[in-house]
Nucleic acid binder design. Structure first.
Lengths: 195, 195
DNA sequence: GGAAATACTTGATCTACATCAATCTTCTTT
DNA sequence: AAAGAAGATTGATGTAGATCAAGTATTTCC
């Protein structure tokens, strides 16, 4: 079985080139963790101490409102980074939960180590700048959809954009991502099946 | 009247420290522009060629849907950066419009120049990484609000978070940001006034 | 492999917000 | 300062999607 470091290094090499020394340092700050399905990576109330890279599996970041309804902030599959960024940056208790929708493996980097990494290998600033630009654009599109489209239109966009993800996750999780009830999503799908 | 460069340099100095040489180079890529109220900085269909820093005034970035309804992606006041980032990065026609809600002054940086800046002064990667982190967090909060809160709750959050901005802009622009009609926002405000 | 939990569907009803339309108010511009 | 444009309010009515409820299908896991 292949070294999980290979996967993350390959991902990183899409954006930046590291020396052998940089690679060693980078590897040294990675902590490999395995999560069972339904296991928490982060619970609201705890401080988000790590930035996490998904090696395998699928996570969801979500909030829970006063009625106990869950609202999904993002999904994270292989190759994605995830944390409660506000909590991570500010050191305040997380408002988001992160848990596993499948058995999942991640690499976690502690905040101090990430800071060191930025200092010792400034290229990482560039990489995360680029990743954040992409995430920013994706979020903007989600915002526009959510303020300007019907539930059906949003679902169609989601389905098209994230078709492989949709195969992996329960339908009620898609509903919690779109901001509609599972009942509504079920009816939308029934409608569409007719066509 | 003071040099507008002072304002942007001061902003930047919150995040990174530049040598005199870096400052000279940075200044050399800035193009100072003035916009009258209602004037476009970018029109949908054109390519977003610049990343823009607001020196003075207020801009809005928005999309227009098939019915002709405007949906505001973001406001940008003094100290904010704005562009249609997707168009800017990909070189594709913009889907967003950007125009001035007040007489406004910006500094614009061309894409090539920004790339050069990243190369010659790598610190800028760090700065924009940090700015993007903050923007990412703010957008996440907006998304959560928009999928989990009522219009009234969203308005209350907006009002609290952006009270000074709210003083400057027409109420129908707030409505277009929240994703409700001007009528609904007017009624929400009437409700709240009763309390 | 079977019980229990979880997920999905369908129907009946309710409600937050949209739409349409008319009037009133406040800004802009000459 | 006056005319016109843009913005805000208010009322009557319509509708997308929520809620409540009861059932069916599908996983999960001892």
């Amino acid at each position: 079985m292949s070294d999980p470091h290979e996967f993350i290094l390959q991902h990183i090499s899409r954006h930046i080139t590291l020396s052998e020394q940089d690679i060693q340092f980078f590897k040294s700050v990675l902590r490999h963790r395995k999560l069972r399905k339904r296991q928490y990576l982060l619970q609201a109330g705890d401080v988000s101490l790590y930035e996490n890279f998904v090696l395998k599996g699928c996570l969801r970041a979500y909030t829970v409102d006063n009625d106990g309804t869950e609202h999904i902030v993002m999904f994270a599959v292989e190759g994605w980074w995830v944390s409660d960024l506000y909590s991570f940056l500010a050191g305040t208790p997380a408002t988001q939960n992160i848990d596993a929708l499948e058995d999942t493996e991640v690499f976690s980097i502690e905040k101090n180590d990430l800071e060191k990494l930025y200092q010792q290998v400034p290229e990482f600033n560039r990489m995360f700048r680029i990743l954040l630009q992409n995430a920013f654009v994706a979020q903007q599109q989600r915002i526009i959809g959510s303020i300007s489209q019907t539930a059906e239109e949003q679902y169609t966009s989601f389905s098209t954009k994230y078709s492989t993800l949709e195969q992996r996750i329960p339908q009620n999780q898609v509903a919690a991502y779109l901001g509609v009830t599972p009942e509504t999503l079920s009816r939308i799908r029934k409608q569409q099946a007719k066509k």
